[in-house]
């Protein structure tokens, strides 16, 4: 069981690592998605452990829904950013600072 949990946490860490190190916006968004999957895994594990798997599934489906909305918005922003900068790199998004 704890192996699953470790797997979930590991996925979250991998996703976080991606947001810290990747400079491509799409890769960062994929990082977010990886994190979300890790969290889902932990929830399913929790459902299995406590015997409320059906409820856990409901939770996971809801989180997936939320993630889908977030990613849709993120992608639309990426498109807008690309139109402005002709680049997907976050190095083009460093004008607001200080």
């Amino acid at each position: 069981m704890s192996g699953y949990a470790a797997g979930g946490v590991a996925l979250v860490i991998i996703g976080l690592y991606a947001t810290i190190t990747r400079t491509n916006l799409l890769q960062i968004i994929i990082g977010l998605e990886i994190m979300a999957r890790g969290v889902s895994l932990v929830f399913i594990l929790g459902g299995a452990q406590s015997g409320t798997l059906a409820a856990a599934q409901a939770v996971v489906v809801t989180t997936i829904l939320i993630e889908a909305v977030t990613v849709a918005i993120a992608l639309s922003l990426v498109v807008a950013a690309y139109q402005h900068n002709k680049s997907l790199s976050i190095t083009a998004l460093r004008r607001l600072k200080g």
């Binding site: 810290i20 400079t23 976050i90 200080g98």
Partner: peptide, 9 residues
């Protein structure tokens, strides 16, 4: 406050 997304994360 570098304005860099990576640094924010």
């Amino acid at each position: 406050q570098t304005g860099d997304l990576n640094y924010n994360s």
